[in-house]
């Protein structure tokens, strides 16, 4: 009786994985942002981003917990969460968009694509457009993109006293690495 139950659970589980397989999912996507000024270099990195790529529709989506960004200076991390992005009020940043351009996920190669979509951060949604590189390997798909954001566009206010320490354009690096299950 018990063995039968486990069999059913196992098949359900397989089915669940299969149904997910059409969208490629990773929970270890990387998002980093970098601000360079003569006074201070700031970086923060998060390698627990949730990223989904639909190989048919070329729809791509990211979600990341703001509190997961690690700064080399812990006090900076606390200020980031408390004063700048207000992580308790707006815990997540999300992106949802589509890749356009010449890309064939069934063929190995490196593709340069344009990704267009909506980025939500600090309660503000803005449409962005960026170029990205998608590398298709036998059992893996790697996506990399670098783009720039202005904190003011997302209503993240920066006090005048530290304005010179934070770049007006923050560069953001995104990497996702999907393994194909066949």
């Amino acid at each position: 009786m018990r063995a039968k139950f486990y069999c059913v659970v196992f098949f359900l589980f397989c089915f669940f994985i299969k149904s997910n397989a059409q969208g490629l999912i990773t929970k270890t996507g990387f998002i980093g942002f970098y601000s360079k000024t003569p006074l201070e270099d700031i970086k923060a990195e998060n390698d627990q981003a949730y990223a989904v790529l639909d190989p048919d529709s070329h729809h791509i989506a990211f979600a990341v917990l703001m509190k997961g960004f690690i700064f080399p200076k812990e006090l900076m991390q606390e200020h980031f969460n408390e004063n700048y992005v207000e992580s308790d009020k707006y815990p997540k940043a999300t992106f949802s968009g589509t890749c356009s351009g010449d890309m064939d996920l069934s063929k190995e190669g490196i593709y340069q694509v344009v990704i267009k979509g909506d980025l939500s951060l600090h309660g503000v949604t803005k449409s962005i457009e960026t170029t990205a590189q998608i590398e298709v390997k036998k059992d893996k798909i790697l996506a990399t993109s670098v783009f720039k954001l202005k904190p003011e566009d997302f209503q993240i206010s920066i006090p005048s006293l530290v304005r010179d320490k934070i770049a007006s354009q923050i560069s953001v690096k995104v990497q996702a690495d999907w393994t194909r299950t066949k």
Binding site: I70, F71, P72, K73, E74, L75, Q77
Partner: peptide, 9 residues
């Protein structure tokens, strides 16, 4: 005033 002597991992 806070000084970081070691980076935080």
């Amino acid at each position: 005033r806070n000084f970081n002597l070691k980076p935080h991992k």
